[in-house]
Nucleic acid binder design. Structure first.
Lengths: 175, 175
DNA sequence: CCAGAATGCTTTAGGCCTGTTTTATTCAGA
DNA sequence: TCTGAATAAAACAGGCCTAAAGCATTCTGG
């Protein structure tokens, strides 16, 4: 994705993915970004496939349920929206699906009749526990190419990136 | 996104985004993954917004054009699909849009009447050049929170992640 | 030559996601 | 109290994306 540096003159491109044949220096940032993107997509795609094949579900649904698991008392739609970093309308749609599947429920709020609390049902809790276990082993496997020290370094570097990119973003979703 | 470690007993969560309140050690991989995902999404969202506001276009369209810029002779649909790491049907749709906007063209291949070459039009070349310049400055800005040394470290660490995750992926898109 | 397999692309159904608009409700101030 | 601003959620239009099915063309082994 995104723009790549132009092909190198000296070394003809036998490109196979998006970041091959990068220029040596001026395009450092671009190259780094493309690599981040590729890594994330590789992992994400893998997880999506596993979720689909093993459990017949999707990443957004899993994500929503995982938020609810951490808050058994339930979350309002707008809280879900903020935590998942997606739009409110999107949360409406995903919640609808999960309600249809009987995994979550909307609970009316007497205090504010505009709002709902969304909660895992008993069935949802059970199903999620099963999925979450496997999910973690997938992640561990996908990231097992780097050792513990490298984990820490990567985590720290990404913390810096996150901090700066959050600030640079135009004031939305600063967490 | 994705499952988070359960909330810490000792330190009550004032969570605001998806990776707050992680457990100390056992969930290292999960935590790292969530941070990768957050970073990528922050940057990607920023770029999408900029493309929309400044140029009225989208990231996938920009991405497709950027592939074509590197191959003025044109690329076949399936080559685009492979390079962009998206499905063939998706490439069909994006190409349709860009053709409608007059930015790319499908060129029939006499040698193989099933296939097309997709190329930037003159207008597309011009428009893309303009966008690409700004695009790079956005990326540079978003990643300016880390210095040159850190860039290199991050690039190297992600290379390891990429390599391993590519191998672990079930044989598709090994680039 | 000629079936059948493989290839290149499109179509279709369905889900995700966004920005915008709409509806219902709550809040804040005159 | 009443009116307008703000908020919560949903509806809507439109684009992205996938897997699977379909159509045309090319290739391959008899």
């Amino acid at each position: 994705m995104l723009r790549q540096p132009p092909p190198s003159r000296s070394r003809p491109a036998r490109a196979s993915d998006r970041e091959t044949a990068a220029h040596p220096d001026d395009h450092r940032a671009l190259r780094l970004w493309l690599r981040m993107l590729t890594c994330t997509q590789l992992i994400e795609r893998n997880i999506r496939n596993q979720l689909r094949l093993r459990f017949g579900t999707t990443l957004p649904r899993f994500d929503l349920m995982s938020q609810l698991e951490r808050h058994p008392e339930g979350l309002k739609m707008n809280e879900l929206s903020r935590r998942m970093m997606v739009s409110g309308g999107n949360v409406t749609g995903i919640t609808d699906q999960l309600v249809k599947e009987g995994l979550v429920e909307r609970v009316a709020q007497p205090a504010d009749r505009r709002a709902f609390c969304v909660r895992l049902t008993r069935a949802g809790t059970k199903v999620f526990a099963e999925m979450a276990g496997e999910h973690e082993t997938w992640i561990v496997g996908l990231l097992s190419g780097i050792n513990r020290r490298e984990h820490q370094d990567l985590l720290a570097l990404l913390a810096k990136v996150k901090l700066h990119a959050t600030g640079a973003g135009q004031g939305k979703d600063v967490g």
